[in-house]
């Protein structure tokens, strides 16, 4: 379980998060939506402490992330995979090396075991034939699928997705969403920040609507999309649907 309580985040004088609380239960798929600049990504990044909240607490299982030393945070991050909008594959490593690096270095897996696991995952995302390529030879969609596989190679308990399809060409969005969806179906606990409303509807157990640094609504996708309770959410959905 991930539990964020009263998260406040300021960048200098700019208040990005104004008291955000959210609980993500085991097996739950939470989709966070909202207009640009509403603090969705910042909130997600606070969960694994890529951003240090100005105040508030983040619990991952029994670990209080916000009260930890950097070394301990690093340890907990093994359990929380993250996928970024811009992939951030390691450009000087091949696809396979991207996948086996952290499991070997951080979890101490033998190379054989790491490679076996990596090939399994690459096969799952349909990119086993690209294992010896360098990332810049891949399309955006392929890069993102590799990035997802790389995060999964650590066998995390949670996955965070930060606008995983926002940097992709339209025709590549589906291949990435398919991978995320199959992950959801396998029971992975996930938090997904996205602008893909159709996808959100399909995959979410819970939809969270953020605006101006606050969570305005938190509801089932059915309820949220058919009958949003705030004017702001209504307005937002009208504009994008």
């Amino acid at each position: 379980m991930i539990k964020a309580e009263h998260i406040i985040k300021n960048f200098g004088s700019i208040k990005v998060l104004k008291d955000v609380s959210l609980q993500i239960n085991q097996g739950e798929v939470v989709v966070v939506i909202g207009p640009s600049g509403s603090g969705k990504s910042t909130f997600l990044r606070c969960i694994n402490l890529l951003e240090q909240p100005t105040s508030g607490t983040v619990m991952v299982d029994e670990h209080n992330m916000t009260a930890m030393k950097p070394k301990q945070v690093t340890k907990v991050r093994e359990k929380v995979g993250m996928v970024f909008q811009h992939f951030y594959l390691f450009p000087h490593k091949t696809v396979l090396e991207n996948l086996i690096y952290a499991p070997m270095k951080v979890k101490g897996l033998s190379k054989d075991d790491a490679v076996k696991k990596a090939e399994e995952l690459l096969n799952k995302v349909g990119l086993l034939d690209k294992k010896n390529q360098y990332p810049n030879k891949l399309s955006g969609g392929q890069k993102q699928r590799v990035a997802i596989a790389r995060a999964l190679a650590m066998e995390p308990d949670y996955m965070l997705f930060d606008e995983p399809t926002s940097a992709l060409d339209p025709e590549m969005v589906k291949e990435v969403l398919d991978v995320i969806q199959s992950l959801a179906e396998s029971g992975m606990t996930m938090v997904i920040v996205t602008h893909e409303m159709g996808f959100a509807k399909q995959v979410a157990n819970k939809v969270v609507f953020m605006d101006d640094g606050r969570i305005l609504e938190s509801n089932t996708p059915e309820a949220f999309f058919s009958n949003p309770s705030t004017e702001r959410a209504k307005d937002f959905l009208e504009k994008i649907l």
Binding site: V76, R77, V80, G81, M82, F84, Y101, K105, M154
Partner: peptide
């Protein structure tokens, strides 16, 4: 790219191996 630090950090890679290898 700052994202390289973040990607390594998010994978649980510590400071020294991140610097040395990534």
């Amino acid at each position: 790219d700052k994202g390289q630090f973040e990607a390594a950090g998010a994978l649980g890679v510590g400071y020294w191996p991140m610097m040395k290898d990534i």
